[in-house]
């Protein structure tokens, strides 16, 4: 497994797209920071990491789709299978590497939030000021980053599943983006439409993405109809299920 991890990290850091992704993230966050200057609640933008969460999700979806499909597109999966006797290890190692990339991206998001805040707003809106939930802006930001990081678990497992079923990384990335960005609104709409009879529907995977909002805005519970604990359990169960189905698809994928 150590060899596999080394190989996967080696491949990851040699991809230009991955190397430049923090720069792209910074540019996009800076754009949001500067363009939000004259809007109302500036602390909101800081605690939302200048929309860095959404941009990081997009980058993560692209990286996840690519790391699986590239092996089949380039035919390199043949070497990997011959060298490593365990397809699950190959699949799981890729997940670990993408998860590590996700953690690094969130680390960058934290640093960039501080930098962009000073570039865009100067010394106004200090991190120590009290904001939502009787917590400082910094505490809100940290809560956001951790909850967003947690929601990435589901994103990675879903995109890996889609990538194992897809022929190309672009198809996998587009379907992944649609699923992840449309999943929550569709889920919220469904729960709202069904109303009291939504006991089963509230456990749908689209609703699980509410975890990132609910940690920061407890009022989201009226939309998700699930407690924080239930959302965490739901996320873990769905992630487990997606890993199992995704691995089966990966194993059976025609080489």
């Amino acid at each position: 497994m150590i060899d596999l991890l080394k190989q996967e990290f080696f491949k990851l850091v040699h991809q230009k797209g991955i190397l430049f992704s923090p720069l792209v993230l910074f540019g996009l966050m800076l754009f949001v920071g500067i363009s939000s200057k004259n809007t109302g609640d500036l602390n909101y933008y800081i605690t939302q990491s200048f929309a860095g969460g959404e941009w990081a999700d997009v980058l993560l979806i692209i990286a996840s789709a690519n790391i699986v499909t590239m092996e089949f597109e380039h035919g390199t999966i043949k070497h990997m299978i011959a060298q490593h006797n365990n397809r699950f290890l190959i699949y799981f190692t890729k997940m670990i590497v993408v998860s590590a990339y996700c953690v690094v991206l969130h680390g960058f998001m934290f640093i960039f939030t501080i930098v962009v805040k000073y570039i865009s707003y100067g010394s106004t809106h200090p991190f120590g000021a009290i904001y939502d939930n009787n917590q400082t802006v910094m505490q809100n930001l940290m809560t956001f980053l951790f909850s967003n990081l947690f929601s990435c678990l589901l994103i990675i497992t879903i995109v890996f599943l889609i990538a194992s079923l897809s022929r190309t990384s672009s198809i996998a990335a587009v379907v992944g983006l649609l699923f992840i960005f449309m999943g929550t609104p569709i889920s919220n709409l469904l729960i709202h439409m069904v109303g009291n009879g939504s006991s089963i529907i509230k456990w749908n995977p689209g609703n699980m993405f509410n975890v990132a909002f609910q940690f920061l805005t407890p009022g989201t519970i009226h939309t998700s109809l699930l407690s924080d604990g239930e959302l965490i359990i739901g996320n873990l169960i769905w992630a487990g299920l997606f890993i199992a189905i995704g691995y089966y698809a990966f194993k059976k994928k025609r080489i």
Binding site: K11, H74, G75, I77, K78
Partner: peptide
């Protein structure tokens, strides 16, 4: 397929990482 450690192969087309 543990014995494949002693096997080298080129099947159909070369599997390479272009980057």
């Amino acid at each position: 397929h543990r014995p494949l450690k002693q096997v080298g192969a080129l099947i159909e087309y070369p599997g390479l990482y272009p980057f």
